[in-house]
Design a protein around this nucleic acid. Structure first.
Length: 395
RNA sequence: GCGUGGGUGGCAGAGCGGUCAAUUGCACUAGACUGUAAAUCUAGCGCCUUCGGGCUACGGAGGUUCGAAUCCUCCCCCACGCA
């Protein structure tokens, strides 16, 4: 299922082929987030044009939205008219995002321990909608409570029919105590076993789908290692996801300690991480695939990637910038439109602005991982990394 | 000409004696966004400032009052109705 084509000498970076039901994924690869079985603002044809290889949809949100319709669901590929590989997230992240993250107004990468004088931007705190038990998780949804556990998550994911499915886990915050991280980790491990059992029970779908276990452990290296060891021994897992909410400084180390333990012959997916600098970090530490809402979310909010760093197309100067966002970019947006036109679309609140920006940002990241693969092939990963980040992080 | 209702910051529109440099929305200026309850959110938005505050402001000019965007007088505009 997964084959490492080449490993770098000076880092853990590796080139691979992930063969799954709906195609072969060349890794390192970027996975676009299509939570509700749709990539926001993009028509399927737009998505194909970005050359993105994989889409990840979300179990919790689809289950919540589709409800009983899932019983006669014909599968995400058909539903989305997306011919390529699909992953589904288990709903484990919603344990965090609808719970702790909502309550404390923090996100996946949170500046939770700000330095003196730091101005910390946070979302307004809101009610915690989550109640975690050893059995599973209760999500408060309007007046009722939705209960999701490992078995149910796997069953829903079978219906959704993605090529890669994820074990149900508890994503934790880096602010909680060691004791709680440990408790949550043990729970996540038990849920991983339950997920695997549920997965293997259905011969038909488990022959088509691969189940990834999810490494947790928060900011504690020993727990991360324990988690990697635990999951590494589960032979029937098709691969691994690395989860959790990080602070930016811990990210690299948290991945490194884990990839040292995980088996080389299985793919590793870094969950929810995907700014350009993080991809280098992840690849260097031995990760194969990445998904992130960033390219599409920041696009909708007017931010576009360029080789010289991110730009905000709503900035005054772009009103009269009749050049392309990136002169040498071959994406549909840059091939046809000026920065000024994009600025105009955003200022006019035209949806096309969000679409064109999303197309560009996805193309940017797809090109980035393409170049990373080439650099590994050329034994020049470190060189390419320095070259790219040298320009990208100047701003 | 008569009657009525109005003239408030770039626009719309609150306020109708003190807590008003003036609610709110839009626009504008920045910033944030990392397994998406985000096409969202945060901050700023008269001038000056040693960030305590100071100054000029609610059509114009006077006046009443300790105090006026708010009350009175005159003037100038606008809308609608009647001639």
């Amino acid at each position: 299922m997964f084959q490492v084509i080449k490993s770098a000498d000076d880092s853990r970076a590796r080139l691979g082929l992930l063969k799954i039901g709906h195609g072969v994924v060349e890794t390192p690869a970027y996975v676009v987030v299509g939570t509700h079985a749709a990539v926001r603002t993009l028509a399927p044809a737009d998505l194909v044009a970005t050359k993105i290889q994989v889409v990840i949809a979300n179990t919790y949100h689809l289950w919540r939205t589709l409800g009983d319709e899932l019983d006669r669901f014909e599968g995400l590929h058909k539903k989305m008219d997306w011919p390529g590989p699909i992953m589904t997230d288990s709903g484990g992240f919603q344990v965090f995002s609808l719970g702790f993250a909502r309550e404390h107004g923090v996100g996946k990468i949170a500046n939770i321990f700000p330095a003196e004088g730091d101005r910390v931007m946070r979302m307004s705190p809101a009610a915690n909608l989550v109640r975690i038990t050893d059995e599973g998780v209760y999500f408060r949804d309007g007046g009722e409570e939705l209960f999701l556990d490992a078995e149910k998550s796997i069953r829903i994911q079978e219906r959704l029919g993605a090529d890669i499915v994820l074990a149900f886990d508890e994503c934790t915050s880096p602010t909680v105590s060691y004791e709680y991280q440990k408790e949550a980790l043990d729970r996540t491990h038990r849920w991983a076993q339950r997920s695997l059992e549920a997965h293997l029970k259905n011969k038909e779908s488990s022959s088509k789908q691969g189940l990834f276990g999810i490494v947790q452990g928060g900011q504690y290296e020993d727990l991360r290692q324990e988690s990697a060891k635990f999951l590494a021994e589960m032979d029937d897992l098709a691969g691994f996801g690395i989860g959790g909410s990080f602070s930016k400084n811990d990210l690299g180390q948290a991945i490194k300690v884990v990839t040292e333990i995980l088996p080389e012959n299985k793919p590793r997916h870094l969950l929810g991480i995907g700014e350009p600098e993080d991809i280098f970090l992840g690849v260097e530490a031995g990760m194969d695939t990445f998904d992130c809402v960033a390219p599409t979310r920041i696009a909708r909010n007017g931010t576009l990637y360029t080789k010289a760093g991110k730009i905000n197309i709503l900035n005054n100067k772009f009103k009269t910038d009749f050049t392309k966002v990136e002169t040498d970019c071959t994406c549909y947006t840059c091939s046809n439109y000026t920065a000024a036109y994009l600025a105009h679309l955003f200022r006019s609140h035209e949806m096309l602005g969000a679409t064109l920006a999303s197309v560009h940002n996805l193309h940017f990241l797809v090109s980035l991982v393409d170049n990373i693969r080439q650099s590994i092939l050329d034994d020049n990963f470190e060189g390419y990394k320095k070259e790219f980040l040298g320009l990208y992080l100047t701003k």
